[in-house]
Amino acid sequence: MVLITGYVKMNGTEINIKKTGFLKEYFGTIFTSLSSLLTGMKLTGYYFIHPNKIITEQYPDNRATLKMAERFRGEVTLPHNENNEHRCNGCQSCEIACPNGSIKIVTKHEISEDGKKKKRIDTWVYHLEMCTFCNLCIEACPSKAIVMGKKFEHSVYDKSQLVKILNKPGSKVMKEAEE
């Protein structure tokens, strides 16, 4: 099936092209090549008249129905419950686990009612612009305080908007997550 034999030299070595009667080969080639081309056209033609096979996802239009996979890694989030409480106790394991320094935990000391000094988070700084969504911080967190969010539309006009503070103002750590 060599329609167009091209140049037969290949690094100096001649390649023998099998000789089977010239006319037979000549017309045989034409028919095999035409049929191979028609096979391809049949396939594209099939898809042309079968618009139901179209696989396009109409992305911005299907926002409402778009469901991300359960484990999809969109951004690191620190979930708060209805009492504005989160589970982070400021142990900084996530900060150490992060390979590219996307997490900065600023801690402060709080005096609890029984007079003991306790380490609490002041700000939970998350650099979304540096994060590679590797999931290592989530794995490292001993109190399961952080989870991966599903949001993926992160584009903004200024990179500074991607530096996020995850703990909400006035939030406290949950009782059961303390130490």
Binding site: M1, V2, L3, I4, G6, V8, M10, N11, I15, T32, S33, S36, L37, T39, G40, K42, L43, T44
Partner: peptide
């Protein structure tokens, strides 16, 4: 089989690849 129909079996495609880029 669709891959074979549209590219692998296609004479133009085969001729573009055959005897080209020889590496011993």
């Amino acid at each position: 089989h669709e891959y074979d129909e549209i590219l692998t079996g296609n004479i133009i495609f085969q001729n573009r690849l055959k005897e080209v880029g020889y590496l011993s």
